[in-house]
Design a binder for these strands. Structure first.
Lengths: 203, 203
DNA sequence: GAATTCATGTAACTTGTTACATGATTTA
DNA sequence: TAAATCATGTAACAAGTTACATGAATTC
């Protein structure tokens, strides 16, 4: 599982509350590993139990008090150890509901499948646009954190996201075309069948 | 969740045991939705409880008895209903441990990251090869099941897998090149620094 | 003689998801 | 005045993972 180590990694940038972590997650790691707020709080408790983070409460007047977590040296060691031990198999299992649906889509009208793929295509196009706008900000953000070297690695992950999105967009476009071809093909067969029926009744 | 509906879908092809289902899963749906044997048994019990499948036990002499599950008409209705209700958002959240690791890879030597990416590249190349060999078999397999029309939809899912693999391969190759460039760049900076130190000690 | 296949699961544990609860402050 | 932001979580449930248990037959 990557979540505890992703949290440890983010805490090396600066101490944060669970709430902060969720914000940072949503604008970075979220592109390749999602986490719910409740999961983050749960993991922070577990990490504190193991001594990988510690916390102190910052009192606030106009806002709820903040419980700020900081990585400990044991936590840094654990993170380092995890990073050095890559898993034997590098590919994570996929879970793509859309493909399960397409696999059984012979039970749907072609027009419906086409409509859904068009919807998918638009979703991915807008996601690509937002990904591409991030590129410019990565360098600036790394400098802001006083970690300019991070930008190189963050860019590698961003490029992966963009590459996959482009591949999916191309696939969706081609699939829509194939569906249209199949629609024409099936319509033709039907009109031929109708002709024959027509001839039969004419006789 | 797609698992119960994937099971219902596969049972429309023919009645199967939990063991059979796992085999079929591993050579089809597994490419976009994985399931453990224990999950399949658990889901089959749940589906039977809801009346979406029923079962009968086939006694065998030399092998353990088989518990063969069959989709009911309620199950077919449920499958159909699920297929007709596409989710509002078509994109499933990603979980890619490799990218989490790369995100924090400034803590590793560049050579180590390069090595891991080379490993990843080889994995994906062999996966691509096996995907490409499946294409020829899909048509034959659909005919074997007496469902030639399915081949069109199965091919759409296969093409998606191939498209993503190719994108990942290209990304890995480009990333490896960028790492090599960075290695050269950093080596050059170091040798300059060493020169200066050398000059300083000479004086 | 060891590993794989066939075939059933159960149990324990870990993760992920959704809903609930609180409550002031700020923005639209 | 309604919604979003800040900030904490807990509880319950759903799904995913790993380990255990059984045992004959077949393949290497």
């Amino acid at each position: 599982m990557s979540l505890p180590h992703a949290i440890l990694g983010l805490l090396t940038y600066r101490p944060m509350t669970g709430y902060d972590l969720k914000q940072v997650f949503d604008s970075s790691i979220n592109y390749f590993w999602t986490a719910h707020q409740s999961q983050i709080y749960r993991e922070l408790s577990a990490l504190e139990g193991k001594g990988y983070v510690d916390s102190r409460i910052e009192l606030q007047e106009k806002r709820p008090d903040r419980k700020v977590y900081r990585i400990t040296s044991e936590g840094e060691q654990e993170l380092q150890h995890w990073l050095e031990q890559f898993p034997a198999v590098l590919t994570t299992p996929v879970r793509e509901e859309l493909l399960v649906r397409i696999f059984f889509a012979s039970r749907l009208p072609l027009s419906e499948l086409k409509f859904q793929l068009q919807r998918f295509l638009r979703e991915r196009q807008s996601s690509l646009a937002s990904h591409e706008s991030i590129g410019d900000m990565i360098g600036a953000y790394a400098k802001l954190l006083d970690r300019p070297d991070e930008a190189f690695y963050w860019m590698l992950t961003l490029k992966r996201g963009i590459a996959n999105l482009k591949a999916e967009i191309r696939w969706a476009e081609e699939s829509i075309e194939e569906i249209e071809e199949r629609e024409r093909c099936l319509a033709e067969q039907e009109s031929k069948a109708a002709d024959q029926t027509g001839n039969a009744t004419e006789r």
